[in-house]
Amino acid sequence: MPGAVPGPLAGEDAIENAAQGGLFRDAARRLRANRAARASALILIALTVLVIVGPWLSPHAYDATDWDAISQPPTLAGQHYFGTDPLGRDLFSRTLVGGRISLLVGIAATLVSLLIGVTWGATAGYLGGRADHVMMRIVDILYALPFMFFVILLMVLFGRHLVLIFLAIGAINWLDMARIVRGQTLALKHREFVEAAEAMGASRRRVLRRHILPNLVGVVAVYATLTVPQVILVESFLSFLGLGVQEPMTSWGALVNEGAEQMESAPWMLIFPALFLSVTLFCFNFLGDGLRDALDPRSD
């Protein structure tokens, strides 16, 4: 049906797109002007490249034991740049390989929470009325549960499968996203271009997909960026308790845990993974804040 009247609908889209293009252009300009956010983005890109490429360039495999270099402090000789652990494994390789897991979990679990949260929130906000009431009441009830304890429980009960980690962490982090998206959708629903599209006979599904969801991109991008560090934190927390990925595979949380046990005799084992973890979280938080300020038209 909407396809039968391409003219007016296309025109409506064009007006909306023009307005939106301006918004995103302004946002991009503001983001570029934010030096902290720009630096964070660069550091994150560099970190990602290092984590992906680094282990191949290192002369030592992450799980190879070097019996001549046990608990060795960082040194350029022997090419153990970050030192080794009590099993003689190279900490440089382990930190980077652990970073792969932490970043992978961070991004994958964020996507899971995004998928659930945006669908839930946009549906509730757009349908409104009783459906909205019931859906948001469910979110309220879930919000009151001590979720972290459930994730620990899940990990203990069903083993430490990587996919389970994504799903469990993603499944607990969608509530905020759903609330934010719902609020935004409610506000959008009464805007002229949505009413115009409805008046032209566009179906609910089309309005949702074509008009509501694209306008949520900004908000969703901000909260996704802020969800990634939270998720990395949860994964590290689980790994720290010994409930994350299994040996010899590792992640930043697991490395911090090993480092904390050896910190008096081998402080480098704590310092390097802790530094990588903290810098990553720091940069994601800064970038998320920068994006939020950039997308807020009042901030000029």
Binding site: L233, E264, P267, S278
Partner: peptide
């Protein structure tokens, strides 16, 4: 920002290292 970026399981060993050890 630094405070929200440093998890407490990183902070705790660092505090022990600094103030206790």
């Amino acid at each position: 920002m630094t405070g929200i970026s440093i998890p407490n399981f990183v902070l705790a060993p660092v505090l022990i290292l600094l103030f206790a050890v």
